[in-house]
């Protein structure tokens, strides 16, 4: 049976791993290559690297980091942050990334999703969506959650699927950093309306939250950062719990 995936997210700034609380107030959480190898050893199903400081110069650093990670890692990983062209994606995939994640650039230029999926295949194109629940509506936000748009989460997600995305990474800005659980209602609706895998992100605080996001939120994968980086949750323990709760996991 296809298992539910547990995905540690490594936010990268200047080559180091950091994790923001509500997208600000950054703390240093370690060396990405070292962390990646440790997570693979401890049962992570996949990793995501998000370069939150992506500028032209730093993207070269990211390409080098991808190469270093690929050399060490025997599980798949996704890279995101500041990716805005076919050339960017080509370089990262060539250096050993399995998938790339695009966010703001997809909103600014939706046709990019079509171009990327046509050239590289849907299976390696993840579209990340940051959204905030405002006055009864989930509004898509850009630039690491700083810039609100008029786009509706569900309409945008549908469009993203039609344009060829292989997966959606949905971060609820209301939940991110709160450790109060994932946005399960919105996640379940995404899963209901779409036919591609959905990764839940934002809000993981304890083991029960993961069980809930798979059972209630119908998520295909769950992403978290600080609870893993600061060892508040051990992935092996988490998976044992999920198995007991009859959720298929790879142990």
């Amino acid at each position: 049976m296809l298992t539910k995936r547990i995905i540690p997210c490594l936010d990268i700034k200047n080559g180091r791993t950091v994790k923001g609380v509500n997208f600000v107030d950054l703390r240093d959480a370690g060396d990405p290559v070292e962390l990646a190898a440790a997570y693979a050893e401890n049962g992570a199903d996949e990793l995501i690297f998000l370069d939150i400081s992506a500028t032209e110069e730093k993207r070269k650093t990211l390409a080098k980091l991808v190469l270093d990670v690929a050399e060490q890692l025997n599980i798949p990983f996704t890279v995101g942050g500041g990716i805005s062209s076919v050339e960017d994606v080509d370089l990262l995939l060539k250096n050993g990334a399995d998938k790339v994640s695009i966010n703001s650039s997809a909103v600014k230029n939706p046709d990019l999703i079509n171009q990327l999926s046509a050239k590289f295949g849907s299976q390696c194109i993840v579209v990340a969506i940051d959204a905030k629940f405002i006055e009864g509506k989930w509004k898509v936000h850009l630039v690491g959650g700083k810039v609100p748009t008029d786009l509706d989460l569900f309409e945008w997600a549908k469009e993203v699927e039609e344009r060829g995305a292989g997966e959606i990474l949905f971060t609820s800005m209301n939940h991110d950093g709160t450790k109060n659980g994932f946005a399960n209602e919105a996640l379940a609706q995404l899963s209901q309306e779409l036919n591609i895998p959905i990764i839940a992100s934002g809000g993981a605080g304890n083991i029960q939250h993961f069980e809930d996001t798979f059972k209630i939120g119908k998520a295909d994968a769950a992403l978290a950062a600080s609870v893993f980086h600061f060892k508040e949750i051990e992935i092996k323990e988490l998976k044992k719990h999920l198995q007991t709760a009859n959720i298929p996991v790879r142990i």
Partner: peptide
């Protein structure tokens, strides 16, 4: 077919 999510992504037996 459409009964499952496509692509299949992840770990299977």
């Amino acid at each position: 077919n459409k009964q499952v999510k496509v692509p299949q992504i992840g770990w299977n037996q």
